[in-house]
Design a protein around this nucleic acid. Structure first.
Lengths: 147, 147
DNA sequence: CTCATTTCCGACTAATTTCGTCGGAATTGA
DNA sequence: TCAATTCCGACGAAATTAGTCGGAAATGAG
């Protein structure tokens, strides 16, 4: 029931970009240093986020990454799904991957209801929190300046 | 963000025991066959659940496992915690294990609030669902008979 | 033009976790 | 006495996680 470092670092990097939204591309080196994560590892993650259309990049000198959309239009759920796959406690709930091995009769699967509830509650949090929400919290706590 | 087979199979086994609560000890062989999971693997899981006090066992012929308490007094959260450890998206939220590596200033950690919200929403579901709730659903769906 | 900066890409590796299996000892009721 | 059953610890294969590494390509500044 854990978020791996992919999700964790990815959200932190996106949060960092949100705090700096509007000031042009930010090099990964800077983000990695501020968030204290490996730059080469972040590179991997940002590649995925770029292909998913959540960030845009600019190569070369004065290049870097920035959010593809304003912070209020990017949710944590989007980020997590790109980096960790579908938000689901059990594969048999993931509609994309079809029914699971023993879930031949989903309507009879009492436990499916339980896991579905769990999934819904997770998605409710992650899909209703935007980077802007986090930015506002940062401002309120006074940790947004200087970045 | 997945429940591993430990949690999944464990919940299924406990659900099976709940459906049969009151009829004396049930041998693992029976539970494993009904739930279509490996018997030797289940053995491992039941050992943990027994040590945690969620089931009681009886060795030898006519032995087996039964719930240590009535189904309405055992929650899914209890089962998951025994088999998967603390319910927390990030280790830094787990009060037992102290603060995480970069969370030296938890009050400044904006993201901590997000992960805490996620944790709360997961625990709300898992700690408020009992085996009896599942049993009632099974009865309502007509899948409880014969077990 | 050149050069430092920076993204981009794919392959590789080490560590950890997951998902079990296996052999045998101990207990117990028939 | 014997079959059924839990109990226990060690073992192992496969998958996942968490990165590293080397180098190619692009680009702005001087």
């Amino acid at each position: 029931m854990r978020v791996s470092t992919r999700g964790e670092y990815g959200v932190r990097a996106m949060f960092d970009l949100a705090l700096n939204y509007g000031s042009g591309p930010i090099p990964l080196r800077t983000v990695a240093a501020r968030q204290m994560v490996s730059e080469t590892y972040l590179e991997q993650l940002m590649g995925a986020l770029r292909k998913a259309g959540l960030v845009v990049s600019k190569r070369g000198a004065q290049g870097g990454y920035e959010l593809a959309d304003p912070p209020e239009r990017i949710t944590i759920g989007q980020i997590i799904r790109v980096l960790e796959g579908p938000i689901t406690p059990l594969d048999c709930l993931d509609t994309d991957s079809g029914t699971g091995p023993y879930c031949g009769q989903p309507e009879q699967c009492v436990l499916r209801g339980l896991w579905k509830q769990l999934q819904d509650s997770m998605e409710r949090v992650l899909d209703n929190t935007t980077l802007e929400d986090l930015r506002q919290n940062a401002i309120r706590l006074g940790v947004a300046q200087g970045q």
